[in-house]
Structures are given as C-alpha cells and as structure tokens.
Design a protein around this nucleic acid. Structure first.
Length: 451
RNA sequence: GCCCCCAUCGUCUAGAGGUUAGGACACCGCCCUCUCAAGGCGGAAACACGGGUUCAAUUCCCGUUGGGGGUACCA
C-alpha cells in the first residue's frame, strides 16, 4: 500500500468542536501508526460564514490537543482555478452539463419523494447555468467502508450534483474530491454524517477515473439526550474544555474511547493508542458524551503528572501569583491536593489553603482555640507526623477523639470544613503563619461579636 | 415522503454460535480515616421486540419498533 496520507478538513465556521476533535484525533492516530502523514485542509469556500478567527481557533485547538500536522495546511479557497479546471474537463468529456433549473433549496420535504427523475437539462445543451455531474441512471453504487462494511445505493436515488454554481463558484462536493486527489489522500476518515456525501462523491472519482481512497466513517457523538451534540449540551468546543481546566490528555482519552474500544483498556493516551488502534475495531453505533467520565480521566492524568509539570500548567492556567515561596509550599502539599481535585480550576482553588482564609465557615469556641495554641506551642518538631502525634497524645490524656480537635484546627487554619490533611497543611505553613492565622480568627471573631 | 445507517447495564464499551455476558464512569453499602478525597472490598444495573436458521442464539438472516444521518447552486 502506498504511504498513508490522511487529512482533517474543518470548515472554519466555528471553534473546533468535540466531534471534529475526535475525527482529527482518529486521523492523527491512524497516520502516526502507519508512519504516514496527517494533513490539514481548511475548507473555507463559504465566504459568508468562514472567518480567520475561527481558523486560528481550530488550529489552536489542535495544537492544544497535541495533534501536530504535517505540511502546510491547504486552503480550499485558494484552489478555485484547479477546481474549475476539473469541472471543465468533465464538461468537455460530456460527463457534465449546464442546468438552468431554479435552485431547490426551498422545496418542501413532501414534494421531494419524486425528485429523482433525470433533469431535462441533461440533453438540452445549455452553455451556462449550474454545472452538474451526469450520473449513471441505472445500477447500484457500492462503497466499501472500513467501519460500516459495504453500503449500497441505487444511482436513481442520487441526483446530478452541482459541481459549479451558476455564479461560477465551485461547490464543496467538487472541491473535496479534487483536493483529496491532489493531496494524495489514501484514507478518508470522517463522520458518518458524510456517508451519503461519500457515495455521491464516488461518482466524481469515477468520472475522473481516479482511484478512490479507502473510506472509514466514524459514528457520531451525541449529547446526553441522544440528540446531535450541540451547545445545548454544555461545552461543545475543545477550547471551552481547556478553559474549564481539563488536560489535553484527558480530553483525548475521552475522545479515544468514543466509538472505539480495545479489550478492557480505559486509560489510553493518544500515543498509546497509536500502537493498539485499529480502524476495523471502530464501532458503528453512536456515542453520548459523558462529562462525568471526562472528570475521572482528568483526575487520573493530573494525579499521574509530575508535580513540576502540573504546577507549570497551573501557573499558565490561573491568574494567581506563583512566587517562589508559594511554589515551594505548593510542591509539598501537591500529592494530597491532586487526589482531591478533578480540574485545574479546582486545583488552583484547593491551593488557596496556602493563603490565609478570607472567611470562616464555622465558629470555633475559645476553649478550643486556647487548647490548640497550647498544644502547638508545646510541639518540638514542626513536622506533619510530629504535629499529629502531639494532638493524638493530647486527645489520649483528655479522653477525646482526634476529630474533635482536628476540625476546630481546620477551621482556624483554612476557614473551611474540608481541607487536605490539616497537620500536613500546618507543617507546610510553619509555626509563625499558623499562629498568625489563629490570631486572625480571633480578631475577626471579636469584630463580628461586638455590635 | 424517499434513501442510508445504527441498536449489550443510566453512560462509554468488551465479548463470543454454548460465558456466572467482562471492564470503566456514575450510583449504593462496608472498610480505612483528622474532614474531604484517594484507595480497598462488595452491591444493584444490559444483550429493544417478533419471527426464522441451528442441537443451541444476545451473537447469523428477515421484519417491527426506536434512534440517528442525509435528502441544497451549505460545508
């Protein structure tokens, strides 16, 4: 087989969305696994809807996911002359004809049932209008899809697709085929929503006598209600997931597992997928995007990432100041933080224990404060285990449970009812900071008590 | 309307002509425990329905139902 060349061909009419990202990912994995090329083609022929911003957004989305592409992206809009050249070639061969019928966009669905009769313009010999491809009228068209198997449709069910609009602009159908051919694409991997398009485009490949690439259609991704994944289902674009604090590895893993499975493999990076992926093992049925699972993957990848790297990512993610002292302390409690958070956002929030609390969610009795201070001042080693031992000893001699002192302590130090292990937090903060926080609590408490 | 496609726990999926139908997320219980997590153990939870083929079908075939996609001089 010739060297694998696949492409991802987004239309820059919006950000890179989940479905597109999955298509790109599968193409990327397939290309890498065959030491082939993963190419990009920007389908920007719809002048009205395509923007430079969206194009950049899509490219950035791909970069963020780590889906690096080979060669310069192809811009479909810049290839108009070539598209027209092919169209005229078809015309001169008698395989296309000009049609002067009015556009059918407004045809009501109920009138479309008998819409397959050959157009009279086929033999009329018009010299202008919309250029249509002359399809065979009898027989069946068969597409061998790697995922879906053999898909057949009667030629009669298809129409004579427009190659060039009456305004002289080539259509998507023409552009795609010409570009795929010129780019030397060997495998077309895209969503099943293109299955019918593929069938129609085959006619064009045949008319030009070009060898059709292999096809693999991917099942669609749907939202929780089973409907097509849309804005109603929350975040749709990968950029939004980035903003929510997800890691690219987590998003890729979630995407990888939609429409594809490999034994009991749940955790798989795109790099790992390269060695075990197979187009043939892609499933046929739709998948619903599950946010809960994405949270789980994200927690996994955060917890398994080297602290330094994750801190660096976090630094870029938040606007919080990351001075040397903060980073130093953060590193110490990180192993405990990372078990408790599912996103970068939560992680940054959890790290706030390193700063004095701004508010207190519970009241602490004076007795408890005094007790805590006494024990703390009696501690000789300012270290997590030693601190805990001191408080345990206190509990033993005073016949109380550790939780009875740990909770007031937690509130005094963090202002919250939940936190990472409080003795660890204290050990990282240091005696002075801990004492200051207790003082802060008292000041704040006395302030709110006085009228 | 017409054409095409799909159908395993709530969700993502594994699976094979004969399995106690497996895993993961979520959920519930227990353990652990300074809180919350994490972790450990356990639990509930699926082959859409009806016909065939077969000694045997959830698996193969047909139909029904349900869902999805397409049906443009959009991409």
């Amino acid at each position: 087989m010739s060297k694998v060349r696949v492409r991802f061909a987004p239309s820059p009419t919006g950000d890179l969305h989940i479905g597109g990202a999955r298509t790109a990912l599968f193409n990327w994995v397939f290309a890498r696994q065959h030491q082939g090329q993963f190419l990009l083609r920007i389908e920007d022929t719809d002048q009205k809807r395509c923007t430079e911003e969206y194009k950049n957004s899509i490219l950035n989305g791909l970069r963020w996911l780590g889906l690096d592409w080979d060669e310069e992206p192809v811009y479909q809009s810049r290839r108009k002359d070539r598209h027209l050249e092919v169209a005229h070639d078809l015309l001169s061969k008698g395989l296309a004809y000009y049609c002067v019928c009015p556009p059918q966009a407004a045809t009501p669905p109920e009138e479309k049932s008998q819409n397959t009769a050959p157009c009279p313009c086929r033999e009329a010999g018009h010299v202008s209008g919309a250029l249509r491809l002359k399809r065979p009228l009898k027989g069946t068209l068969s597409c061998k899809d790697v995922v879906y198997g053999s898909v057949e449709v009667e030629y009669a069910q298809l129409d004579d697709m427009v190659l060039v609009r009456s305004n002289g602009m080539p259509t998507y159908m023409l552009c795609v085929v010409v570009d795929d051919y010129d780019m030397g694409i060997t495998h077309i991997i895209r969503g099943v929503d293109h299955l019918t398009n593929t069938l129609r485009q085959m006619l064009l490949w045949q008319a030009m006598d070009w060898e059709m690439p292999e096809c693999a259609h991917l099942p669609l991704i749907h939202g929780q209600d089973g409907k097509k994944f849309s804005k109603r289902h929350g975040a749709v674009s990968v950029i939004e997931y980035q903003k929510l604090g997800f890691l690219p590895d987590a998003v890729c893993n979630a995407l990888m597992r939609m429409g594809w499975g490999h034994d009991d493999t749940e955790l798989v990076t795109k790099e790992e997928a390269v060695s075990i992926f197979s187009l043939a093992s892609v499933g046929k049925s739709k998948a619903q995007f599950d946010l809960k699972k994405l949270y789980h993957y994200n927690q996994h990848y955060m917890a398994n990432m080297p602290t330094e790297i994750l801190l660096e990512i976090l630094k870029n993610y938040t606007s919080d100041p990351f001075d040397e002292d903060f980073i130093n302390k953060a590193k110490q409690i990180f192993p405990e933080i990372v078990k408790r958070v599912k996103t970068l956002h939560e992680c940054a929030e959890a790290l706030q224990v390193l700063h004095a609390p701004k508010a207190y969610l519970e009241h602490v009795e004076d007795d408890a404060i005094n007790m805590v201070r006494d024990v703390l001042l009696s501690c000789e080693k300012w270290e997590s285990d030693a601190l805990e031992a001191s408080f345990r000893e206190y509990c033993l001699t005073h016949d109380c449970k550790l939780v009875a002192v740990a909770q007031p302590l937690r509130v005094l130090i963090t202002g919250k009812k939940v936190s990472p292990p409080i003795f660890l937090v204290m050990s990282v903060l240091g005696l002075q900071e801990v004492m200051e926080r207790i003082k802060q609590y008292e000041e704040q408490a006395s302030k709110s008590e006085s009228p």
